[in-house]
Design a protein around this nucleic acid. Structure first.
Length: 633
RNA sequence: GGUCCCGUAGCUCAGCUGGAUAGAGCAACUGCCUUCUAAGCAGUAGGUCUUUGGUUCGAAUCCAAACGGGAUCACCA
């Protein structure tokens, strides 16, 4: 309708205003809830053009629109706004149009270029936690939304399966894992631990040992004993100690950290881990075997977690496969003059001309860093998918700088697709107690959290659900749908780029703006339609609509634009909020009128059609968010 | 210190490209199940949109500065 009026006005401008007008002059907005109208045209822009008062300009537009635009009932001019009231017949027609297309709001499949969406991408040394949940739910939802607006989508993750962090777990396991009676060290099968949890445990063990050894070294330094310390390090420590004087507390703490860093570097255990990494890059058979085994454990654990989350991937990338390509690229870039080499052999890029710093892309010992791998992975992906148009990286906002640099490097290496790479940057998830810190044990484990919300859904559903006749398995599935659905909605309803607070109690809430609220509406309509033995059927266009009914159709008709906005802004939150508004409207309607038991057949049918379309829309929106829509609960 | 992000009700958040009297949920209080699922609905109360300037017919929204919070500036990933 907006488009209609817009076109009509543009065409009629010469006769109406005496001159042609530009598109931006015509501004539509949603009409305020408390005044009559379905669509509002802002009159102010026309005031200057017509050189008259807002009221007069409004009147002029009103007369013209009422006479020339079909579907318009009448217009009201208030305070410089022209509120357009559309006819009930127009709205009924909209409802039929939606009913006639089950995929209303969705674009045609594969009508837009291929996009790869990366999410999850965990390290293989730690189990998944709350931060990963936001990442994964967000990425998975964005992938679905992009698909719905017509893109071909490849869901992917890159698995950080190499690097010093893996070696730490491997080393700790070799050193500290107890041996049982059969001479075996701990494995997932002989401990019953999930693989990722077991490996994570040894990562922590490593850190403990490292801290302990570093502490001892610092104590030595404190007492002036530098017998085992290289000259250069000794000098650095003494310099830091010197610098510490006459500094404020904060600066002193920062210097202490630096000294600690030096001490850590002197520990034998870290040296061993570094040697292991070098061996790994040289494909030492023993190290490789251990690496394969322990990573295998982690993957198995992650698989379970992903299954519980209800997410999946189309294609996996392993950094162990792409880092060599990254190194090659760096060498080529070096030849081409994009990078430069320092005397110690390390390779850098100078981005000072772009307002950024110098950035390391290859270590002096020739091993790869994070950036090296990411360069390789990106190029690998565009090789694998020749029709790939762009990438979306779902990664936390603490890496804003990293991605800025990455995209810039790819551009400088001459890859034009770098312009279509987007960093879907999201804010951290805070706890009421503050930031999650692994050292302080405040990390919320993904598996534990999911188990908790399912348990809560279980308890609540037992208490107030309608479960008669459901099998034990079906009930359990329902608890999972509600628990996980609630968790997803909780994490997705907030604007991704904003930092958010995770309140454990609210996250399993069922009332208000929550996942179960939407699911409940869906279930209620489902059983309602079943009881009514609903069959789609045409309604006379002469049927009149109540204000709520009209509001609901209006909101239903916004689905497409809500979806478009969500895709454009990579923001599932927009879709979540849209759906919440729709459900609130419908609930008010549901409570205030009779539907199944409405005696007037024409009205009954209209209300059923309306309910059916609301259910459809909730179901579509929830599925885009990765949330199940149960038929009863 | 440089760069980037954020600041809306007691709490958690909406508020799209500037538009009418700034909205929800939670928490608090009042009502509504002998009619289709009350995980619901109707209502009361709660605001200097951090502050100060600027642009504009019009600013929570755009610009600048200040204040407050966070991230980042590693041969970590």
């Amino acid at each position: 309708m907006e488009q209609h009026i817009r076109q009509a006005l543009l065409k009629a401008a010469p006769e109406l205003f005496g001159c042609a007008i530009t598109d931006e002059l015509i501004q539509f907005q949603q009409t305020r809830k408390d005044v009559e109208g379905d669509l509002t045209l802002v009159v102010f822009p026309f005031v200057k053009l017509l050189r008259c008062s807002p009221q007069a300009a409004g009147d002029k537009l009103k007369t013209w629109i009422e006479a020339n635009v079909p579907g318009v009932s009448h217009c009201i001019v208030i305070n410089g706004f022209l509120n357009i009231v559309l006819t009930d017949a127009y709205w009924l027609e909209q409802l039929f149009l939606m009913q006639a297309q089950p995929l209303y709001g969705f674009a045609q499949e594969n009508s837009k270029p291929t996009v790869m969406v990366e999410y999850a991408s965990p390290n293989t040394n730690k189990p998944l936690h709350l931060g990963h949940l936001r990442n994964i739910f967000l990425g998975a939802a964005v992938a679905e939304i992009l698909r719905a607006v017509g893109h071909k989508v490849v869901r992917t993750q890159v698995i950080n399966d190499r690097g010093i962090h893996i070696c730490k777990s491997m080393l700790a396991w070799e050193k500290f894992s107890p041996v049982n009676a059969r001479g075996e060290r701990e494995t997932p099968s002989n401990t019953g631990l999930k693989g990722d949890k077991l490996v994570g445990k040894y990562y922590v063990e490593f850190d403990k040992a490292l801290q302990k050894e570093a502490k001892a070294i610092m104590a030595q330094w404190q007492s002036g004993n530098f017998s085992d310390t290289p000259e250069a390090v000794q000098q650095a420590v003494l310099n830091f100690a010197q610098a510490k004087q006459d500094k404020d507390e904060k600066a002193q703490a920062a210097i202490d950290d630096k000294i600690k860093e030096l001490a850590k570097n002197q520990t034998s255990i870290l040296q061993e881990a570094k040697q292991m990494l070098v061996k790994w890059e040289a494909r030492d058979p023993q190290v490789y075997l251990l690496w394969t085994t322990m990573n295998g454990w982690v993957y198995e654990g992650f698989e379970q977690t992903y299954a519980q989350m209800g997410v999946s991937f189309d294609k996996l990338y392993y950094e162990s496969d792409t880092f060599l390509l990254g190194k090659d690229q760096v060498m080529e870039g070096l030849k081409a003059g994009v990078f430069y080499q320092k005397p110690d052999g390390s390779v850098w890029i100078d981005l000072t001309a772009d307002g950024l710093d110098e950035k390391l892309v290859l270590r002096s010992d020739g091993t790869a860093v994070y950036m090296t791998q990411d360069i390789g992975t990106a190029i690998d992906r565009f090789k694998d998918y020749p029709d790939l148009h762009g990438m979306v990286y779902t990664v936390g906002n603490e890496q804003d700088y990293h991605f800025k640099v990455l995209f810039l490097i790819l551009q400088k290496l001459g890859y034009t697709w770098a312009n279509n790479c987007f960093h879907l940057s999201y804010g951290m998830v805070d706890l009421p107690s503050g930031k999650m810190k692994s050292r302080e044990g405040t990390v919320v484990d993904a598996d534990d959290l999911m188990a908790e919300v399912i348990e809560k859904a279980n308890a609540m559903t037992q208490e107030r659900g309608h479960l008669e006749g459901l099998s034990e398995a079906a009930r359990h599935a329902l608890y999972t749908q509600i628990g996980i659905g609630g968790l997803k909605y909780y994490l997705l309803k907030v604007d991704p780029k904003k930092r958010m607070l995770f309140n454990p109690e609210e996250s399993i809430d069922l009332q208000g703006n929550t996942g179960p609220f939407l699911q409940y509406a869906h279930a209620r309509i489902s059983t309602l339609l079943e009881k009514a033995s609903y069959q789609p059927n045409a309604i006379k266009l002469a049927t009149t609509l109540s204000p709520v009914e009209k509001e609901i159709i209006k909101q239903l008709s916004y689905f497409e634009s809500a979806l478009q906005e969500a895709a454009k802004g990579y923001s599932p939150a927009l879709l979540a909020n849209y759906t919440y508004e729709l459900v609130k409207l419908y609930n008010a309607f549901y409570q205030s009128v009779k539907i199944v038991i409405e005696p007037d057949q024409e009205i009954r049918q209209l209300r059923l059609e309306l309910s059916s379309q609301v259910r459809q829309t909730i179901s579509k929106a929830l599925s885009l968010l990765g949330i199940a829509a149960p038929a009863r609960m």
